[in-house]
Write a protein that binds this DNA or RNA. Structure first.
Lengths: 248, 248
DNA sequence: ACACGATCTGCGTGTTTATGCGGGAATCTG
DNA sequence: CAGATTCCCGCATAAACACGCAGATCGTGT
């Protein structure tokens, strides 16, 4: 068994189960523990997976609880500040939910006059602190997981909206496969949000770049702006720029 | 189960319910109490959650309302407990907003199966912590004062709802003049809510009894239950009972 | 063909980490 | 204040890990 083959096998397991145990790999690939350990070491160094005591985890799947981590918050504030340059007085803006969007709302200029449509109660509550902003909460079934409203009712209401800009956080983006996620209902929702907006901006911390999940939301051709905490000229964003996105 | 996985599971629970019990985690993750305790210890040290006796709490959203700042909280808890006797499995319930209703939601039985329509994002967020409850948030313009959705869009959606019970807090109630309030838009909203519900229950702390404000919402004949923190036989409730309300 | 270096692999050894258990302290609840 | 629960501390153990070394393999240049 060649090293490259092992690496592929390991990554296949990671993509399939989001986790893998060192001992299982020893058994599966018929090599010594040390070899597996060295493999995981290398894959970890090249950011392909997350090495932990006892095995390894998918890098995309760790997202859930990084939200409160300080470094991620810092990154999100940077993203928020960049995003503000897209927002002008008088705009009609449609937003999703998530901590990145919340952080954006907290950074908005105090005297902004705009209309915000949102599917997230948390975002609505935060937006309501600004006098100049009209907040419209789109109603529907409230998702216990994503903490946003969803379902057919939301989608049919979206059809009646014509927004200048759609701001949305994301779980995974990839130059080739575009936006992907894990929840079918939420995906349909995002598609509908994209359709009723003139421009779409994706807010995305860098660790979610170059990752794919199971379900496709939209190709990059439907997205106009990509906003990360990295400098726009960063190498790992090159692929995205060459596909026509505005990188901030 | 890898340590890191456990940490993610724990954080998922925290993000979902804002709280978690050590014993539940022991049961859920199938490890010893000490291990859970050590996990919580670590997550607490890295500021991911707030460790407390018996479990842990979310660090970020310790409820949008500050528990201790709620006026007459004890009274509202009494009201909540009385109200629960009106709620049965399978019901469709429509609620307004306000701290009294929030307190009610917090006291609901864990295994209740019901459908709740609400115009308050805060109430929706609180309701979402119950697995057995389906939460539907009615969308519309978000009022910066009352923290509920309102406007024509809300009223037209209410017309399509047929609820078993409408639960609503109040600013003022009087034996003769009925329910009164100060905000015309919110009044229209409450009228619409009453119309689409078979029964209406008013949750009301005693100091708001026998008071009138400028605008009339509804006469007592439209109300079926009056719930206060006082014993039902209290003298000052006699007038209300004689007008046909169920006093709790 | 052969020597050489680079890479890969497995083994032995000692270290670190993770976990469960017991007993006593601290805290909660009625 | 008394009983129950929860917490904390030290210890024991097994698993996982890091490191150095040596043998195997392979490609390359002479």
């Amino acid at each position: 068994m060649l090293k490259r083959e092992r690496h592929e096998q390991i990554m296949r397991q990671i993509n399939l189960h989001n986790r893998v145990l060192t001992t299982d790999l020893v058994d599966m690939l018929q090599v010594s523990e040390d070899t597996i350990r060295r493999d995981l070491q290398e894959l970890s160094e090249s950011q392909k997976l997350l090495k932990v005591h006892g095995g390894a985890l998918s890098r995309s799947y760790q997202s859930a609880y990084d939200d409160n981590a300080i470094y991620a918050r810092e990154a999100k504030i940077v993203i928020a500040k960049k995003t503000i340059s897209l927002i002008k007085n008088g705009m009609v803006i449609l937003t999703g939910g998530g901590t990145t969007i919340i952080e954006l709302v907290k950074q908005l200029p105090v005297h902004l006059k705009a209309t915000f449509f949102t599917i997230s109660p948390f975002v609505a509550i935060e937006l309501a602190k600004y006098d100049g902003i009209e907040v419209i909460l789109i109603g529907g079934i409230f998702s216990k997981n994503s903490k946003v409203t969803f379902g057919g009712h939301v989608i049919s209401q979206l059809a009646g909206i014509n927004a200048d800009l759609c701001l949305i956080g994301t779980s995974a983006i990839h130059p080739e496969y575009g936006l992907t996620d894990t929840d079918w209902e939420i995906n349909e929702l995002k598609k509908a949000m994209f359709q009723c907006s003139k421009h779409v901006a994706i807010l995305c911390i860098s660790e979610k770049l170059d990752i794919t999940l199971r379900l496709k939301v939209a190709g990059l051709e439907n997205i106009h702006h990509l906003i990360t905490e990295l400098p726009a000229e960063e190498e790992c964003l090159r692929e995205y720029r060459s596909r026509g996105l505005n990188i901030h």
